[in-house]
Write a protein that binds this DNA or RNA. Structure first.
Lengths: 188, 188
DNA sequence: GTCTATACGCTGATAGAC
DNA sequence: GTCTATCAGCGTATAGAC
């Protein structure tokens, strides 16, 4: 197996564990087990856990920037862009079994290594900035109706999605859909 | 110092650590250090970490039920009750340094002992039920305006508060206030 | 270049001293 | 009844084998 593929497989496994158990709750051993090697083998690819955590959030940032740069996304109207943003969280939730990256990281922020904190902060700001722009443009185009600053509305919507994924996991998976419907309703 | 006071002091310290570092991120040693004893002394009061976690969430549930039962809260109008509910999260946030109980627990849910999971679930449902009733009554009284089911709106608002506390910690503390303002605006 | 054997600190927990 | 000395196990990380 090529080095790149192993790296990616490690990251995929780590990503799932992170969103199940949080940053402090996941360890190298289960990843190694799934790959049929010793835990120390993972340290070859990611010398420290901080490296692995940083790589995970960095990859997620790259993906978000890549997607938002695609013509297919940029050409959507305001409602389409909002729906796409919500669909990210539906994917994160995976039917109520997991939470999103930022939820998994932010709720144990003080326990994170510095590089992971920094990456989480960046991802957060990049997502908020994109959403704010969509909300601002959507209101000017007459698609959305809401009061106050677009920045505040972006915080509200992103907070609601992040919180709903967590609440859905503990109550009913359907609660994420409830929240999304209400987000849409509150913009009409 | 009486047994009860020591218990309460341990719980207060544990509560702060839990909301800083998450369930898996906090341990007995810092609590013992703050109290000037060995970590094993905490095990006398709380034999297992599961006991301590359970006691913390149970206490929070009791507090919520006690507060919502008070005449001072029950006599508030719909907006007053909403404001009170939001103020809980302002207290949780502590100026952007911590997160709420449910955020701290839910994002590492799969790593929690069964008793803690169960308590978190109950607290979640109790808070949602109370909020739903406030939203339903408030709409019928003509105070709130929103579309769809009250239950969905309750999920939206509680999710938003929970998420905003987390986002505020990582971006700007003010973002919790932004979210609260937007919650209010979306009910008018 | 990739992995295994191994170290070592910290965690939650027990037995028993006072 | 309250705490200390101590432990077994897991966590991350290093040195070195192949």
């Amino acid at each position: 197996m090529s080095e790149t593929n192993t790296r990616a497989r490690i990251m995929d496994l780590a990503q799932d564990l992170l969103r199940e158990k949080g940053y402090t709750g996941f360890s190298y051993t289960p990843i190694a087990g799934a790959l049929g090697v010793r835990n120390a083998a993972i340290h070859y690819h990611f010398p420290t856990k901080e490296n692995l955590g940083e790589a995970l959030v960095e990859r997620e940032r790259r993906r978000f920037l890549k997607w938002t740069g695609l013509k297919a996304i940029r050409d959507l109207d305001a409602w389409g862009k909002l729906d796409w943003f919500c669909s990210i969280y539906e994917r994160y939730s995976q039917g109520g079994t997991r939470v999103c990256y930022l939820g998994a990281l932010e709720s144990s922020f003080d326990a994170l290594p510095e590089a992971v904190q920094s990456q989480a902060q960046r991802l957060n700001l990049e997502m908020l900035a994109w959403l704010e722009e969509v909300l601002e443009a959507g209101r000017q185009a007459g698609d959305f109706r809401y009061e106050g600053r677009a920045a505040g509305r972006a915080v509200l919507i992103m907070s609601a999605l992040q919180g709903a994924v967590q609440i859905a996991r503990v109550t009913a998976p359907d609660n994420l859909e409830q929240a999304i419907q209400q987000i849409r309703a509150s913009l009409r």
